[in-house]
Design a protein around this nucleic acid. Structure first.
Length: 416
RNA sequence: GUGAGUGUAGCUCAGGGGUAGAGCGCUGGACUGUGGCUCCAGAUGUCGAGGGUUCAAAUCCCUUCACUCACCCCA
């Protein structure tokens, strides 16, 4: 299906590494995993993301189920995690909750580089903390994670969108400014001027960029609380030496963001260059029917992150390949390989009754470290041959002690 | 939703009205019981799909689908 893809080996190995590192890093910082459903009531997303956003207006997989309920495949995770936090009264133990979720998201967009209809995110959320320290902490964790998985050329950009109180007058002034330059704007910007004037900032049309370069910025409109919050976020980032730049033109496509917003852009990703993005959402929980509880978080686009990372290393082979000749030897090979696999020595056998040559070729092809040759002659003498594939050396070992010998030679660790 | 590009073997791609190709990979042989290198042989295709033009279409025309990239949007 368009925009939906299979992830095959050895690619799956790269995914597992990303997930394992995420669990390690986040666990280390005191985050717990939460698993939420892939389906939610449509209303959850229209209320949180915003009725008039592109995501809700034209990108959601929405349908009615067999009982007539309007449901949607989640286009992002924050809304679901917030819903779970409220529904299970997680704030009752302590308002602070540090949670993460990993899984697929769905948006009906036209696929292109770094953009798919089913894509995967590592989603990180902190509820119950309004202190600017947590904004900086969350960004630092993100940058640390990106660095340990080997992402190159990542840059953190931050901005503050203010709260509804300071954003409203700003929006009005910006609209007034845009009306004054209406004829110089592209049709798209003219159209979204009333609903979403901020969007003009990331318009790529040159005329719009010229106009927008003179447009008023949120900066000048932040109320004292918001301005101070932003200054302190920056100070905390500097304290722990997390490099960042302020991008006063950064805009978000989801309505719930307040105050701090941030984005990590990476080189070489094509048009979709945001690897991760997030920010503060102080009214989301309340809007969803919870208490007055602030929140902050981010999501990492796993496909995009993978695009910035090196190719998968060639997969490692089995520790041992058993080449058997004849019915009797095959039975011995079957028995041995089963027991060795149980003991942690990844062992392969041939299932087709091939010639010894062909079996050795397969041992080599799959990258086996050792080969065990059980032939009819050896069997009669009660011996087998253990061959070191790399050193090209082999020796006979007595059949009764093969199991122990192989374990001591090959070792117990699996190479998969 | 708009625009452009590409669809030929498992993969990367050449061919552009007249017998379906290369490299890599795959299977086997040379080496009758020992892998990588070399050499030889072999298998694999509805030439994306449907329709049209033609004595003849992978090739030209139309339609459609898929993939890719960009716009838009976003992770």
């Amino acid at each position: 299906m368009k925009g939906f893809s299979d992830i095959l080996p050895p690619e799956t190995g790269r995914w597992r590494v990303l997930e394992e590192r995420a669990r390690e890093v986040l666990g280390g910082f005191g985050f717990s995993e939460i698993r939420v459903p892939v389906l939610e009531r449509t209303e959850l997303f229209s209320r949180s993301i915003g009725e008039e956003t592109d995501i809700v207006e034209k990108e959601m997989y929405t349908f009615t189920d067999r009982s007539g309920e309007l449901i949607t495949l989640r286009p992002e995770a924050t809304a679901s995690v917030a819903r779970a936090y409220i529904e299970h009264k997680m704030y009752a133990f302590d308002p602070m909750a540090k949670l993460y979720a990993i899984g697929p998201m769905f948006r009906h967009e036209k696929p292109q580089m770094g953009r798919y209809r089913q894509f995967h995110q590592i989603d990180v959320e902190v509820f119950g903390i309004s202190h600017p320290m947590i904004d900086a902490e969350v960004m630092a964790i993100l940058m640390y994670y990106l660095s340990i998985v080997g992402a190159k050329g990542c840059a953190l950009q931050i901005n503050s969108l203010g709260c509804p109180r300071c954003r409203l007058p700003y929006k009005e002034d910006l609209q007034a400014f845009l009306r004054g330059h209406f004829s110089q704007l592209c049709p798209d910007c003219q159209r979204r001027m009333e609903k979403n004037p901020l969007r003009g900032f990331d318009c790529k049309v040159q005329g719009c960029q010229e106009v927008m370069s003179k447009a008023p910025l949120v900066e000048g409109y932040l109320c004292q609380d918001c301005a101070e919050h932003f200054a302190r976020v920056r100070a905390f980032l500097e304290t722990i030496e997390v490099p960042y730049s302020v991008n006063p033109r950064m805009v978000r496509g989801l309505d719930y963001y307040t105050k701090t917003t941030f984005e990590v852009v990476a080189e070489g990703l094509g048009a979709q260059d945001a690897v991760a993005a997030g920010g503060r959402y102080d009214h989301l929980i309340e809007d969803l029917g919870g208490g007055n509880i602030p929140g902050t978080g981010f999501a990492i686009g796993m496909e995009r992150l993978l695009l910035t990372l090196p190719e998968a290393p060639p997969s490692r082979g089995p520790s041992l390949f058993i080449a058997a000749l004849g019915e009797e030897a095959q039975r011995e090979a079957f028995n041995l390989s089963y027991r060795l696999n149980l003991a942690g020595v990844t062992t392969m056998v041939d299932y087709e009754g091939r010639s010894l040559k062909a079996q050795m070729r397969r041992a080599n092809k799959f990258g086996a470290l050792y080969a065990l040759i059980i032939g009819e002659d050896e069997l009669r003498k009660g011996k087998v041959i253990l061959r070191d594939m790399k050193e090209r050396r082999q020796q006979e070992i007595p059949l009764p002690s093969v199991f122990e010998e192989v374990i001591s030679w090959v070792g117990g660790g699996s190479s998969y």
